[in-house]
């Protein structure tokens, strides 16, 4: 759901697929161990069945950690990585935000929880909170989220990112994974720090994120 505003910007030049990670959106709740390795295997199976040829991955937060894992996987030809506040690169700052999801009940508490992730709270609507509430009511979703949170809060940081075409976008006011600019500058040649933006840049600054990603894809010179 969170990518729905961004997708149209790429549909004139690319075929676009939105992949829900296990335990998220409309995906199933088999998260395996909850570790990034298991999640990336699940996504890889989905990709291999659906897409042929090189792919550019645009990924956010936990999806970013999965995208990095996929880029290191020789079974998948990843042509470009565009990462938004990827997990595993810097320490998780607000562990309660991640571990709290599985315990949320009402639309009101979900809305308050989601607002911790953004700078401008108006971005979070009741319909978004209601969507999350419906998701939490599906069988096995809360247990899946508990496993994901446990893995996310105990995993070691990713030691390196091996890919030549790498773009990173981070909100300067992200309080979920607080940006450490010297570390990010060392990791990413193409780093975009967005002022007044929190942990959801693709929702908080959709058009800006799309421009950065489109420029990265254009620089790659491929319309795959």
């Amino acid at each position: 759901m969170s990518w729905s505003f961004a997708a149209p910007a790429f549909q004139k030049t690319h075929s676009v697929w939105a992949v829900d990670l296990p335990g998220h959106g409309v995906a199933g709740n088999d998260v395996g161990s909850g570790l990034v390795e298991d999640l990336s295997e699940a996504v890889k199976r989905e990709i291999i069945e659906t897409i042929s040829g090189p792919i550019a991955l645009l990924a956010h937060s936990l999806g970013g950690a999965v995208a990095i894992q996929l880029a290191h996987d020789s079974d998948i030809a990843v042509s470009q990585l565009v990462l938004l506040a990827p997990a595993g690169v810097l320490p998780l700052t607000d562990t309660d935000f991640v571990s709290g999801f599985s315990k949320l009940e009402s639309v009101d508490t979900i809305s308050k929880h989601l607002k911790r992730a953004v700078r401008r709270e108006k971005i979070i609507t009741n319909s978004m909170a209601d969507y999350v509430r419906s998701s939490l009511q599906t069988a096995g979703r809360r247990r899946a989220l508990e496993k994901l949170a446990s893995a996310a809060t105990t995993s070691a940081l990713i030691p390196e990112i091996r890919h030549d075409r790498l773009t990173c976008i981070w909100g300067e006011d992200d309080t979920i994974i607080k940006p450490d600019q010297p570390r990010l500058t060392a990791l990413f040649d193409d780093l975009h720090m967005l002022p007044n933006i929190g942990h959801l840049p693709h929702l908080e600054a959709t058009q800006k994120v799309c421009r950065i990603a489109q420029a990265a894809l254009a620089a790659m010179g491929s319309l795959d």
Partner: peptide
């Protein structure tokens, strides 16, 4: 604001 979320338009 749509049925899914809100967006700030530039």
């Amino acid at each position: 604001t749509t049925t899914k979320a809100s967006i700030e338009l530039e």
